[in-house]
Simulated assay, not measured.
Amino acid sequence: MTGGPMSVDADPVAEATEFVWTGAGEPIGCGVTRLGAGETALLLPALSSISTRREMWPLQQRLARRFATIAVDWPGFGTEDKPRRDWTSAALAQFLADVLRELAPRPALIVAAGHAAGYVLRHFASAPEEVSHLALVAPTWRGPLPTMMGRRPAWLRTVRAAMDRPVLGPALYALNLNDVVIRAMAREHVYSDRTWLDRSAMDDKRRVAQARGARFASVRFVTGALDPFESSAAFQAAAAAIPPGRLGLVWGAETPPKSKAEMGMLAAAAQVSPTVLPHGKLGVHEEFAAEVAEAILSGLDEASELAVAPIE
């Protein structure tokens, strides 16, 4: 296992473009990486203070041997500068709907990590007939602070308001998301290998955290304002609505206990046998991309075989 993600620029076949989204008012450019040929596979990175489509790159390289892959940044995240916004779950849900209409209509495969998986379930729960195949990797629905506290107290709005202030906000953000905090967060929740964040990988994560305007979406994710569901029951009900054979679940055995418990309940509600790798935390798709890709493709092939099996 090698530390850190590969650079997109290292592969001359990859095409880096931009999806200009206008759903939040003024146009917002969201980074896009395309790789491969064939049917479309849409890759959606997790939402977090250090997340970007680049975390999908090791997985994207492997899936591109079979699909025309499209990885896209969420608005408010990624490495580009961002406008000040009171980001909401409704806005991100609209973004996903626009991506599926304009950027990647009717994909044969959607791979979604972390909270992205929650948004995908939220979207398709009301239109399950539109699902081809969903592969959800370490799926989550609740932000870090509400998960830690087991609730979403009203005072979290005060935290968001403080972070939005012009002078106080950047100072608080720098205090709470410096190199020490990023490394601690990565070791505790994201990567199994404590040395995964080598100098190159740390530079990548730092660019995400230090982009102008990054604090607005980051604080809303951390405090639960971007949670795609209000409850675990709603999360499970959305998964149960997906037609049989069209949902795959993958996570690592080292996933933090509260999140892993939620994933287990999700699998039970959807009546899906998950693939649980012997290692991996919330960044399992980045750190163990080969094994995650194998699990996704195996699940896809198995679903295809079931779909064409003769009725006895």
Rank of each mutant, 00 (worst) to 15 (best):
A117R: 01
A162F: 08
G114L: 02
P244G: 06
I182A: 06
L134I: 12
W251F: 15
L282E: 07
V292Y: 14
S192Y: 03
A184P: 01
W141R: 01
R34W: 05
P45K: 00
P153Y: 15
F229G: 05
R54Y: 14
Q236W: 00
A238H: 04
A289M: 07
P278E: 01
E312D: 14
L92Q: 05
L43F: 09
P153R: 13
P144W: 04
S48I: 03
R160L: 00
V20F: 06
S89C: 07
L175N: 01
A201N: 15
L103S: 00
M263C: 09
R122S: 10
S51Q: 09
M202D: 04
A135E: 08
D11H: 14
R84W: 10
I50P: 01
A225D: 02
L121D: 07
T40Y: 03
A46C: 03
V167P: 02
D301I: 05
K281Q: 11
L297W: 12
M56P: 06
T79S: 12
H279N: 05
A217G: 14
V208L: 11
R62H: 12
D11F: 09
G36Q: 13
G76N: 09
S232E: 14
A261N: 07
V111R: 02
W74R: 02
M149W: 05
A71C: 10
E102V: 05
M163F: 13
E55T: 13
S298V: 04
L297N: 02
M56A: 11
G118E: 03
L175M: 10
T255Q: 13
A237R: 11
P256E: 06
A14T: 10
A91F: 07
A93H: 11
G23A: 08
R160H: 05
L300Q: 12
E302M: 07
V181F: 14
P146K: 08
P144M: 10
L109M: 09
R206V: 08
T79Q: 14
V308I: 15
T140H: 02
A217R: 01
P144S: 14
A214C: 06
M1E: 14
D227R: 00
A68T: 06
I70G: 00
G213F: 09
V159E: 06
L306E: 15
A238G: 03
V180Q: 12
T255D: 13
V208N: 04
P310I: 05
L168P: 03
V308C: 08
W57C: 04
I311G: 05
V292C: 13
V20S: 09
E102K: 04
V167A: 13
R187I: 02
P310F: 07
